[in-house]
Design a protein around this nucleic acid. Structure first.
Length: 426
RNA sequence: GGAGGGAUGGCCGAGUGGACUAUGGCGGCGGUCUUGAAAACCGCUGUGGGGCAACCCACCGGGGGUUCGAAUCCCUCUCCCUCCGCCA
């Protein structure tokens, strides 16, 4: 959510910033509603002050005709207040309805552009691994080795679900453990969070109301499956006033993520690249606004370390203004090279949300006691999405015979397995 | 799933229709006293909104209602606790 005071003070600046995203939201309507709301508020609050004062007087008076007269007067004043209160509430609701659909303002450093074609490659690290044979895609390697079974996933649940088996399941678990341990060393506090949340939590993180179509939901209770643990890590401090001396707060969490993928139906249907359920290790930071640019670079370095320690060639992209997500003011993507699929795979997306989520979640902090509260900045980034990392490892570490070498850093978690050979299907 | 009890400020806890401008205590901050500290005493100590300001408004878990007036009465939702049932 944007700051209404900011819109009030610099409407043209706000319009220009949002135009960079290629949108033209109803800023003038918002200003009009805001101004109507404030003048109505001044009026109704004056009447309330009068009612409060007179009601107190009534309480002190003896029963007499004067008292009855005042009660009658207050009764009609009450009707008037009710009427104005309702109009104020209507205006506020209308204003709120507009405000919650306005995306975050792009950071000044974000490159211009209308969509992903305008995203900028900042750097490419590592060489695309050369192969003396034609590298296979993971959707062939996995079933051939007996470590991915697509048919079973479809049978059990439906399209875009799969089963990992034996060394495949173990490799994913190894990645999760290794990544979390790495992030702990990088200074993050590990959290294990719920995978289901209430509606309010999704609103706080900026997923609702706009992206309702992409979420799984239990209609009987107010329970929604999270699309990312960014949601729960934002919810962690909802409605709190944090102690400023404790910032920055850095968290890491593993979670399953659930996405209906209605927006991308038909895309990336082969393999495990885009499922309805996937695992992810997330990094999340709450910090003061002065630190957020540097926290972003820091988090980027942490995600890069994940790629480089796994020996994967990767590149860093910065999203153009037109491709930024709803809550983000600046976003870096990390893509790793998948030689079998023959494409760059987005394994991580790191966003600086500024105070946008903190506002929606009502998360504040106070630098020192007695000072006014401020909204912290929040940043989130995948410490890599598991299925795509798995793809990259399988395709990059494959050998001519179809076996897969286990990356050095994962060996401690693989129970002595150094090469994943064909497994008997069970 | 059934029965009952709860939710008040940073924390504990009183308040069941008008002096609540939310009692009291703890903690915190400032002051007096002191060589210094402790103790004692005095004062201050929630959030948001409106207004140039004085000041005003809202908030006692959330929402709605009754009333001239609600922390207090009514409805409803959420959450917590106790017991029973079921359960990894």
């Amino acid at each position: 959510m944007l700051d209404i005071q900011l819109i009030r003070a610099n409407p043209d600046q706000i319009k220009n910033d949002l135009a960079r995203r290629g949108i033209d939201p109803p800023i003038d309507k918002i200003l009009e509603l805001d101004s109507d709301r404030r003048s109505l508020l001044a009026k109704v609050e004056g009447l309330k002050a009068e009612r409060n004062k007179t009601s107190k007087d009534i309480g002190r008076m003896q029963e007499d005709s004067q008292r009855k007269k005042m009660i009658a007067a207050m009764r009609s004043l009450g009707t008037e207040i009710d009427k104005l209160d309702r109009r104020t509430a209507d205006l506020e609701a209308e204003l709120h309805q507009l405000m919650i659909y306005i995306p975050n303002l792009p950071h000044p450093s974000v490159p211009d552009g209308v969509d992903e074609a305008d995203n900028v490659v900042i750097k490419e690290v590592g060489e695309k691994k050369p192969f003396a044979f034609e590298p296979k895609p993971h959707w062939e390697l996995g079933p051939d080795l007996g470590i991915i079974n697509f048919e079973q996933g479809v049978k059990i649940t439906g399209t875009r679900f799969y089963v990992l088996s034996g060394a495949g399941a173990r490799l994913q678990r190894a990645l999760i453990s290794w990544m979390i341990d790495l992030h702990i060393r990088q200074g993050y506090l590990e959290k294990y969070m719920p995978f289901m949340v209430r509606e309010e939590t999704l609103f706080a993180a900026g997923q609702l109301p706009k992206f309702e179509d992409n979420l799984y939901r239990d209609h009987e209770d107010d329970r929604w499956m999270i699309p990312t643990s960014e949601v729960t890590l934002t919810g962690l401090h909802m409605q709190e006033i944090l102690d400023g001396s404790k910032l920055p707060l850095r968290y890491t969490a593993f979670s399953a993520c659930f996405r209906r993928e209605k927006m991308s139906a038909g895309r990336d249907v082969r393999g495990i690249k885009r499922g309805h359920q996937f695992d992810k290790v997330e990094m999340y930071v709450y910090c003061i606004k002065e630190d957020s640019d540097q926290e972003m670079e820091r988090m980027m370095a942490h995600a890069e370390e994940t790629c480089s320690q796994l020996g994967l060639a990767y590149r860093q992209l910065e999203l153009s203004a037109g491709d930024l997500g709803f809550t983000a003011r600046k976003t870096y993507d990390i893509e790793v090279w998948a030689p079998g699929s023959g494409e760059w795979l987005e394994v991580s997306s790191l966003s600086n949300c500024g105070d946008f989520q903190a506002r929606r979640a009502n998360i504040r902090f106070r630098e020192k006691e007695g000072e006014p509260t401020q909204f912290p900045h929040t940043l989130n980034g995948s410490g890599l999405a598991l299925p795509r990392t798995l793809i990259a490892i399988m395709e990059n570490y494959q050998q001519a015979d179809g076996s897969i070498v286990v990356p050095e850093v994962l060996k401690p978690w693989m129970g002595g397995v150094e090469v994943i050979e064909q497994e008997e299907e069970r």
